[in-house]
Design a protein around this nucleic acid. Structure first.
Lengths: 187, 187, 187, 187
DNA sequence: AATGAATGAGAATTCATTCAT
DNA sequence: AATGAATGAATTCTCATTCAT
């Protein structure tokens, strides 16, 4: 009677790091198994394919963001500025750990023409993120402007993450965050 | 049947499309050979490995940008605004063709932790791009501000390209371009 | 269909025959897989490359000789002549089966300038063989003479194996054995 | 009108070195072309296949030995001992140059079960060599004894060449030569 | 004669996946 | 649940050979 060495969530978390660092196609099931401390075959008890695992990772991460981070938009005990500061703090935590980068952007770009159902799931993540910014900005801006600023902010952050990775310099992300805060303040 | 069917540049151009659409790891030498209309083995006459071919593609594209696009920064017969408009027109041409997207960003993200010498080459591309914006902005802004605006603009465009691909909507890129122009005008 | 169809030792033994008959470079992993009754890919569960498999074969054979054949040198219940007779009987068994020939000599010659770490392993085999003869001869000869006779004997046998293969005639090996015995007796 | 850069003999001589150092299967037509200073395709003007080239090399070398070396057996102006000394000097010249080794032995072992018509040609070489020794020994020994001593000598030399290559030590060959001379003298 | 591009079969190796235990 | 052997298709790369120029 074998002992449960891992569970689905454990596998998701461990493979998340690997997918984030290496991308989808470069990561092998053997890489993931090793990262989880189990054997390749055992992965198939939890996920019936690599695609399904990747989808579970995307879903898990989306829910994590929605529940733990983007949910800040509905808080009543802090103001808009504080919400933005919270978002940036969390972004920096996540985009700077495990070699840095944003899994959604990396996997999104890598698979957009190749595995369309990943793209659908990734859309949900970006919609949630944009909608979070939108709601915060709608304090101070009319709806259309809030929407545009939200898309603008997400784009700016993702572009900065790219430059950060390419040049190995965190300043890009920090500057982007600062600009977003400034746009909010100076309105 | 011998006879020159292709040459190095032809292969680079054809594989560029494939790498841009599918990424590095998903693209096989067979895909490229098919795109070039030759056989797999023949590719190895021109490039001794898939990595070498990818590097040639990156170099080719960087030189293309430097010579045909970023070189606008030194033109004397047009003003800063016109230079920016030229850049955006070219960006839109390139980032919207062949399934859309920016090869440098896609390959950069996919390989940053995995094939470091690609990253070095990709850095050169982004340096050239930033330096092009920098010089244009330095008409109207002090050096430090010009630099920051340049990095800002590149990040914003790349982030927009990401959203554009994920949501299949060109508006993101166009808005980013508009914002960059506005920042230049309203200064 | 899983179930253990082979194990490392089985693969080593089956590939030994193939390497002995065809040499290292001519033998393909597909040849070996077929000889083992498994698929090519399955070989890589046991050995991570063709080189590693070849090395395992060399090591296995060296140990087999050391444990089962050259170890005769330390027996106390038989005399030197009987030891020599035992060695020759074993030699004939091995050098005359599976198309005949000596794997160590064949692989040694084929790879000496090309895969140096094979040569190191093959040296060990020949050292053990020479040292076996040496100890037997040291009964009747002073140390230096015993050493020279040992090297002489091994060379003579290997040269005879070559002629035997080229001319498809076992007499060469048998004559060499006879001469070695005579040198021991007539001393 | 292209200039004759090479001729058949030049190609044979240059590929001889390569085949001797690397063996038949490991040596590619590209290796040979490079060694000859021509392009791969050009080799096929002179030899219609790799096998045919190898055969030409074997034939060339056999004739060289027969004409320049083994022919010593018929000289009237030197005695048997001097003939042996001449043979050994030539052997040492050849077996010690270009990484050392005997092409006939190396190619013979590598291809004996795989390309039978090489073996036939190689037999001729060894027959000539044995017959050379035979005739020299027949000065002092009865025919049967001379034959056996001749085979014995060739085997001993080839085995020594093997040990010489494996241990990178010329002493093995030199000792073998000495023993052969001694057998002649002390008769 | 010489070139060198092109071929296509085949090499080693990888990898997602299956399945009996 | 976990294993790990086995699969077989796919992947990168090699190489002897052909042939138009």
């Amino acid at each position: 009677m074998p002992i449960q060495k891992v569970d689905k969530e454990r596998i998701i978390k461990d493979s998340l790091k690997t997918f984030k660092a290496q991308g989808y196609h470069k990561t092998t099931m053997a890489d993931i198994a090793k990262a989880c401390g189990i054997l390749k075959g055992s992965l198939y008890h939890y996920f019936k394919s690599k695609e399904e695992l990747m989808e579970a990772v995307i879903d898990y991460l989306t829910q994590y963001y929605e529940n733990k981070i983007f949910s800040v938009k509905n808080k009543h005990d802090i103001n808009g500025y504080e919400k933005l500061v919270f978002l940036m703090k969390k972004s920096e935590e996540i985009f700077l750990t495990d070699n840095g980068g944003c899994l959604m952007a990396s996997i999104g770009l890598e698979t957009v023409n190749v595995i369309p159902h990943f793209t659908q799931k990734i859309q949900r993540f970006f919609k949630s993120w944009i909608s979070c910014f939108e709601q915060i900005f709608s304090d101070k801006f009319p709806p259309e402007k809030a929407t545009e600023l939200a898309e603008y902010g997400v784009a700016e952050i993702e572009g900065s993450v790219l430059l950060m990775l390419i040049f190995q310099d965190e300043k890009y992300l920090k500057h982007a965050h600062q600009r977003i805060l400034n746009r909010y303040i100076n309105s």
